[in-house]
Design a protein around this nucleic acid. Structure first.
Lengths: 337, 337
DNA sequence: TGCCCTCTTGGTAACGTTACCGAACGCGCC
DNA sequence: GGCGCGTTCGGTAACGTTACCAAGAGGGCA
């Protein structure tokens, strides 16, 4: 196994100095075309690739052209779409993306962030988990840019891209109420997650505005997977006074719930998903645009990396309620029924 | 904005030499507890993080604890599952993952691979695109390990993890034929992609074995998105002699096709997807296990990184045909109908 | 007391690159 | 011819870390 060639090897091969090789490799001006050709020939012959590790070390206050992206779980389609969008933007800026999953574990998030900063990322996009993010303080102070996406990090004064979770869920629940439902179930992930908390608040606000007492028996928090959500639905519906409508707080929960949901129960899910329109009945959803969210977050990050020092801002992206049928199933109090 | 502290700063703060700081930071033995405590205090006070860029430079023949993962498109749920599995394995080995998408573009693949090697990754997992991969030769010779996943790279002698694409599709098409279909449509991505070619060959083999002439009018290649697949289905079904059954070569095509597919056309898709069982009719699929595939590929890669020098091998993971209904719709030649 | 051995500690030289400076060369002009 | 200038090139010193070696302190033993 050949050892990796260095500029010195290339220089020797081409009969020039290392500085000339450096200039050619980086496309710097001031090299005679004939010399450059000789160097490029040597580069090809030896299979030389510039070593960015050494390069970054020397160019201390330059950029590493690397950003980090930490999401809850890469396999989650919503997060995957954000990741893909972020990667596209990074590419436009000549950067690559380090990826990591927190799996909703603060210790793991810490480790991922540490691994990122140790690799001198220019900045990172995070979907923060529950807990204190004070450990990010020193990282930020040392110049690493941070943008939060999907979830806000309370106590951390950074750019944030979120959607109008509270309004969206409140409006959706109001819609269910208007369609004649009073016993509306709520299925959500861990309530401590910012997004989840906002959505739950929206649910409660809609009930309160309609003068409906919130029944804790209709609420299930902490659902982390499809099967957990399915079990929760089965249990809710087996209760003495089952709900006539359900709201699912995210797409994982929604898909899990739909696997066992009878077609006569009204249903609205947060996040759109493929084939929602082909279900029986077609599924009404609160749609957000993960590509737009990821793109916006990445643009904010690169603006910071490139010197934007304006005060941190929070961008609220819109959601759209897409009525397809499942959310329009009338409830027992529907007018005219 | 404070500049990033170095070991020298910590050493000055703690009143020790840099070597002592290095030892403490790396948990090396041979430092008196009292001294170590003083250093750790200084580390905390200054918010010091080890600079792995400099570390890697010095430890030239050591590992960078970074691997690359290049897939066609991160947002593709199949690829996202592989990415997630690979990240989990990487984490077990204390490594982080650089991610990149080729988007089926050889030039882009080259750039991503170059960006990976420039960052001295220990190895990479690739889903190679169409084209020659000779440019990987020098990278491999210089010690970067490569594992191909999902698709083989013809002409590249590396570990590869694939599924039995040919057999799986041939068996699925045989099943459609046994159910009375003779005009069976095929919807696929670019035929030049290894996986796609294998699946198409399986389709042709099943037809030939049954003595059915392959009708090119029933075959659509090069479908890169859901909408393209939907259009293709609409066109195929509008033809004078439309197919009575369809086989979709991957999940993106399948989901696109299902958006417009009438319920009386038999259908089998490659790759399982959420809620396939809840469609009307429930969708028969050839399922592969992306988590197992990604995990296997990552394990192979780390085995190589840790010194495995046995000859490259190809691991063929199993697929499972899951009959749910859509693939069992009888055709015009069904017995007893 | 002198010697050796262990424990702890620090100095120095790399790793591969680039920033900074200076040198060599050719050319035009006084 | 001498001088200045632009072009092309190379030497040297960093970047922050670790490998290697060496040195001082302290203790045990002859």
């Amino acid at each position: 196994m050949a050892t990796r060639p260095t500029m010195k090897d290339v220089a020797a091969e081409a009969g020039v100095g290392v500085m000339t090789v450096s200039r050619v490799v980086n496309g710097d001006p001031g090299v005679a075309p004939a010399t450059a050709a000789r160097v490029e020939e040597a580069v090809r012959k030896l299979g030389y690739h510039r070593d960015d590790v050494a390069r970054q070390l020397r160019r201390t206050n330059q950029l590493s052209q690397t950003i980090g992206l930490m999401v809850d779980h890469v396999a989650d389609p919503f997060m995957a779409a954000i990741a893909s969008a972020a990667e596209d933007v990074a590419r436009q800026h000549g950067s690559v993306v380090l990826i990591g999953s927190s799996r909703d574990d603060l210790r793991r998030e810490r480790e991922v962030v540490a691994a990122f900063t140790a690799r001198r990322v220019d900045g990172m996009v995070l979907t923060p988990v529950v807990g204190s993010h004070r450990f990010l303080r020193s990282t930020i102070e040392q110049g690493t840019k941070v943008v939060c996406v999907d979830r806000a990090a309370p106590g951390l004064d950074v750019d944030t891209v979120v959607v109008d979770n509270f309004d969206a869920v409140r409006d959706a629940v109001q819609r269910l109420i208007a369609n004649g439902h009073r016993r509306i179930g709520y299925l959500g992930d861990r309530q401590e997650i910012w997004t989840v908390g906002e959505r739950h608040r929206g649910y409660l606000a809609a009930l309160e505005a309609a003068g409906i007492d919130a029944d804790p028996a209709l609420v299930r928090h902490g659902l982390r997977s499809g099967p957990e959500a399915a079990t929760a639905v089965t249990e809710l519906l087996a209760a003495p006074e089952p709900p006539t409508a359900l709201l699912a707080g995210n797409v994982v929960v929604a898909i899990g719930a739909l696997a066992v949901l009878p077609p006569d129960i009204a249903f609205i899910g947060f996040d759109d998903f493929a084939l929602a329109a082909r279900m029986t009945p077609p599924v009404t959803v609160i749609a957000q645009d993960p590509v737009a969210i990821g793109t916006t977050a990445a643009h904010l990050l690169f603006a910071r990396i490139h010197g934007d020092t304006s005060p941190p801002r929070t961008v609220v992206m819109p959601t759209t309620l897409i009525p397809r049928g499942s959310g329009e199933i009338p409830g027992p109090y529907a007018q005219g029924s």
